[in-house]
Design a protein around this nucleic acid. Structure first.
Length: 277
DNA sequence: ACGAGAACCTGTTTGC
DNA sequence: TGCAAACAGGTTCTCG
């Protein structure tokens, strides 16, 4: 599910419920997600106040009292949904973690594929944490400009589409927004990454920034699993220009092409062979 | 060192 | 209709 816009949507939705509030109980309903939960996880979190909610690329970072940091990743199918105080909704089979705050609201982490994870670190060790240390700037961070991007892509022989999915090259971009940004920039997903420099990089940076910001404004894209923290669907999927639109006419003005699907690095890529070069 | 492909897990859709 | 294959928003490991 979640690329940068979906994680940011969840972060913003959780903020009013969690920030400044104490977590009274943490119910851990299985031993592991993609990786095991830390030993004593629930007891460690319980009783601590949340001081801030941050996002690093596709990671949600929950700052706790005493400079502790709860690292969350939603994988492909993870959701974090808020239940109001007093709700007695029975747990789903894939509700793996339930936080209850001092005001009685609950935050439920549900993830049927379990590609997500939760673990702990400290503010001091965050930058060197193995999960976070090699993540590149995301396109919405200061300093992400054409020069920065072409420097990250320099020397890479892999296709640009695959390079954009590599979190060590660009943070936060996943399969949907890589295809969408390349289409907006008129760049072929097959083009060697190293050749995306100069004018092409100058087109690709605003294409990425715009598509990510538009998707955040729409609450993310709900193909199957994504929900906002409120439980509502995102609706950016209605604004896709190429993703999952195989065979449809290319939406680029004046282009007579048709959207095509290919497989790169085991992932679907959608593009127009006529206007993307 | 780099890039391609498989693996992780469950659920849904597609095709024969 | 039924069953098997393909596919899904991500990451990480192995292999060549």
């Amino acid at each position: 599910m979640p690329e940068l816009p979906e994680v940011e949507t969840v972060r913003r939705g959780l903020q009013p419920v969690l920030e400044g509030r104490r977590i009274v109980t943490l119910e851990q309903r299985r031993p592991n997600l993609r990786i095991p939960f830390p030993i004593g996880f629930a007891g460690f979190v319980e009783g601590r106040r949340v001081t801030a909610l941050r996002r690093r690329a596709k990671y949600l970072l929950i700052d706790l009292e005493d400079d502790q940091v709860l690292i969350c990743h939603l994988g492909m199918s993870g959701r974090m949904v808020v239940l109001p105080a007093g709700s007695n909704q029975p747990p789903d089979k894939h509700d793996h973690v339930v936080f209850t705050t001092e005001t009685g609201e609950r935050v439920v982490y549900n993830d049927h594929r379990r590609f997500g994870l939760m673990t702990l670190t400290t503010a001091r060790d965050e930058a060197s944490h193995p999960l976070l240390a090699s993540i590149a700037l995301d396109p919405l961070q200061p300093g992400f400009d054409a020069d920065h991007l072409s420097a990250r892509l320099a020397g890479k022989k892999t296709p640009i589409k695959a390079a954009l999915l590599d979190q060590r090259v660009v943070g936060g971009v996943g399969n949907i927004y890589a295809s969408e940004a390349l289409h907006r920039a008129g760049i072929s997903p097959r083009r060697q990454a190293t050749s995306v420099a100069g004018k092409r990089a100058q087109r690709l940076v605003p294409a990425m920034v715009d598509v990510l910001n538009e998707a955040i404004a729409a609450g993310g894209s709900s193909l199957r699993d994504h929900r906002q923290a409120s439980g509502e669907l995102g609706y950016f999927q209605h604004s896709f220009r190429v993703y999952d639109r195989t065979g449809e006419p290319c939406p680029t003005r004046g282009c007579r092409g048709v959207i095509d699907r290919i497989v790169q690095a085991n992932r679907s890529t959608f593009f127009c062979g006529a206007c993307q070069r």
